[in-house]
Amino acid sequence: MAKLELLQSLSGHKGIVWNVSWHPLGKIFASCGEDKIIKLWGKEGESWSTKTVLVDGHQRTIREVSWSPCGNFIASASFDGTTAVWDKKSGQFECNATLEGHENEVKSVAWSPSGQLLATCGRDKSVWVWEVAGEDEYVCEAVLNVHNQDVKKVAWHPSSDILASASYDNTVKMYKEDQSDNDWTCVATLQSHESTVWSLTFDKSGKRLATCSDDRTVKIWQEFGPDNQEGVNLEDRESIWKCVCTLSGYHTRCIYDITWCTSTGLIATACGDDIIRVFKETDDSDPNAPTFDLIHTKLNAHSQDVNCVKWNPSGNQELVSCSDNGEVKIWKFTEQ
């Protein structure tokens, strides 16, 4: 039997904890929320504790934190309309750059795998791409206005500069840069969810994407690139993403977050029914029509909505989650 064992419950935030982000090595993570602070948590012996608290970066709720791939920067997206970039050149994390431009609430921020690009999105329906242009210098590379509603989440492809965004307009969009004129354009629209798409996560290869929605389903999408073996016809040489699996009937409320483990391939979800669920691809799964089993259901993982779940990038099967009730929890997953 698979189990999700609670290692530690961490309190310290006041009010809703919206998001958590692992340092790329998985020994530290950051959390943020309604109390406008970012907490960095580290492990001493067997127990986790607050190492640093970053304050005074934002005027309103911090909706998401994202650790850069090199581990030297943290970006935070806030309802005050700004995105802050924190670095530790001075030895401690300090905010040395603020990205302004969104008209109002910024909902999500993500670093590209190279660490050279940042993406943000928000209530103003736009997705922005920023490039690191020098020390503390970030320039706007693109403002993408293709969603027609609030954009909830941005995520980068794990190995190339392809960006995906999820929106209240029920779709996911993908973007990439046209090298001929440095212009970013929307290259794919993923349409199948029947309500807000809250979050999305690529698998290790970047060939698959998992999305979760207010329609209580998880969908798995697969890329069919140029010269694909399956004979999927591409009109203009751009990859097509097709929904190859829908996990429905498992979640009883809105699914707020989803995380795909790069080492085990397990998918975990954060749901408004206070439950964390873990899914595993079946052994006899058809690559073009994959099947997944629900292998664990952690009832009452939190006493209120689970807002975010993240697998530890080190692959040690640790999972961190956070909730409306102010708690952050560290879990260990085992499959026997």
Binding site: N104, K125, S126, D183, T185
Partner: peptide
């Protein structure tokens, strides 16, 4: 079409 760099209504 593919030029999406216009100022659009946003709220």
């Amino acid at each position: 079409t593919d030029l999406d760099d216009f100022i659009t209504p946003s709220q």
